[in-house]
């Protein structure tokens, strides 16, 4: 394996290890639920990204062939981690956060989790019925 590849792989592995550990440590250390969301969504994304780049360079150095599947995993994680974070934040807003503690967006509107009607609210208004009382849809027609 060429020397530059060895240096690059080592560097990326060490950096990503540190960032991954800091992300998990932040999850444990930060004081309240909303600040905890910050640590894993950022530090861990770079941690895994670094590992994947290291793996790509290592594969290229060892075999001479460039494998591109790692890029795909990185891309997938970058696309999905904001969505997971948004969902977790929405769960927190829905279950715990008082509406009065948030800044108002503009006069006469509210945040979608609290005031919107219909599907854009993302929260069911009517509590689900217990399974025994649930009426099955009529499929005979």
């Amino acid at each position: 394996m060429p020397f530059w590849a060895e240096i690059t792989v080592t560097g990326f592995l060490v950096i990503s290890g540190v960032f991954g550990l800091v992300g998990s440590y932040g999850l444990l250390r930060l004081p309240d639920p909303m600040t905890r969301i910050h640590a894993p969504t950022k530090a861990t994304t770079l941690g895994v990204g670094g590992v994947l780049i290291a793996s790509m360079v290592y594969g290229f150095g060892a075999t001479g062939e460039l494998s591109t599947r790692e890029l795909l995993i990185t891309l997938f994680l970058f696309l999905t981690s904001p969505i997971s974070a948004l969902f977790i934040a929405k769960v927190h807003l829905h279950l715990r956060q008082k509406r009065e503690s948030l800044p108002e967006p503009e006069p006469d509107t509210g945040w979608a989790s609290y005031t919107a009607q219909g599907p854009s609210r993302g929260v069911r208004d009517i509590p689900p019925q217990p399974p025994s009382e649930r009426v099955l849809p009529d499929r005979s027609r």
Partner: peptide, 10 residues
């Protein structure tokens, strides 16, 4: 972290 959107999306 972005958490929510206003009802009218503004």
């Amino acid at each position: 972290v972005s958490c929510d959107l206003a009802e009218d999306g503004h």
